[in-house]
């Protein structure tokens, strides 16, 4: 069991806690392979998915995870709740708390929204992605996938490429992978590389590398993690055109060949095919993109269990 009420980010998770989540996820993974995909572990618990941003895979993944553990799962999206009537986030959360929810999974466009909630609710808060801050369960499922394929989380070269500035996935992965002693190469155009990114981890800062050259970042990489270009967060011209973006930061078969022969290609989804990743790479033999999705269910089962079980 985790000795914490909430899962708000990877930054303040210890290595032991991360390993506990991953190990638990291993054992839950098997549940999804059964004919009857359900265990009674969280029977009588209520999990609310409170989503203020469009999401298909994360919301569905949490919903399936909760249901496979026999929890009652309720989905609320901003268009169907009182939020559209002008209710504040805080009142929405207090209302859900008053209904004795055990866990609220929140996805919000504002960084820090889960932290604001966590201070006010008795329910456990799980960050399902907040602004450009963190997306801890994504990093955990990425770690699960990497560990499964590579057998370890240390001493790897991991290239994270694309829209780092707007990416919560990048931030959570940076924290997690450097905690375990892997080299993380961040690669983006200078306009998409946020200031001070090289200093955001509190320890093992020397493992974080910055490059504007995709060839350099991919060279000898064990893992290439592509980031989605987040057009919806871009109010300015961070790059001249999609064509030019793909020229410098699109993952093509030719570029992928610079990586290790057993490289795995990852993407948190949803993909912009032809923008950050070529279709033949996304669907190619090194791609583990769908493995990430199935790992997501197991990891979220583990997170819900470790916060709510017992």
């Amino acid at each position: 069991m985790l000795k914490r009420k909430d899962l708000l980010g990877v930054q303040d998770l210890g290595r032991e806690e991360i390993l506990e989540i991953l190990d638990t996820a291993e054992s839950f993974h098997e549940v999804s392979t059964r004919n009857i995909k359900k265990v009674p572990t969280l029977r009588g618990k209520t999990v609310i998915n409170l989503f203020f941003e469009a999401s298909t895979r994360t919301r569905t993944s949490f919903e399936i995870a909760g249901k496979r553990l026999s929890a009652d799962v309720v989905n609320i999206s901003s268009s169907t709740s009182s939020v559209s009537k002008g209710e504040t986030l805080i009142d929405t959360a207090k209302t859900l708390d008053a209904m004795a929810a055990d866990c609220v999974v929140i996805r919000h466009f504002a960084s820090g929204a889960p932290h604001t909630l966590a201070k006010l609710t008795k329910a456990s808060i799980v960050n399902g992605g907040d602004g450009a801050h963190e997306h801890p369960t994504q990093a955990l499922l990425d770690a699960y996938t990497i560990r499964h394929r590579k057998g370890r989380l240390n001493d790897l070269k991991i290239a994270i490429i694309g829209d780092v500035a707007h990416s919560r996935v990048a931030r959570s992965n940076i924290h997690l992978l450097t905690k375990f002693g892997s080299h993380v190469w961040l690669c983006a155009a200078p306009t998409l590389m946020p200031p001070g990114i090289e200093k955001i981890v509190c320890e093992n800062g020397e493992l974080l590398h910055i490059s504007h050259s995709m060839d350099e970042a991919v060279e000898g990489a064990d893992v290439v993690m592509m980031l989605r270009v987040q057009f919806e967060r871009m109010s300015e011209s961070f790059f001249p055109s999609v064509r030019e973006y793909f020229r410098y930061y699109g993952l093509t078969t030719v570029r992928a060949e610079r990586a290790m022969p057993d490289v795995i290609i990852m993407h948190p989804g949803p993909m912009n095919r032809g923008v950050e990743i070529a279709t033949e790479v996304a669907d190619g033999p090194y791609s583990v993109i769908l493995d990430q999705v199935s790992a997501g269910v197991a990891v979220r089962m583990a997170v819900l269990y470790l916060l709510l079980g017992g």
Binding site: G112, P194, G196
Partner: peptide
Amino acid sequence: SKGGVMHEGIYSTRLGLKGIP
């Protein structure tokens, strides 16, 4: 400063908040 809500630097990057340089 457009869209910024705090000082642009390590903390804004870590917190995922838009910075004002």
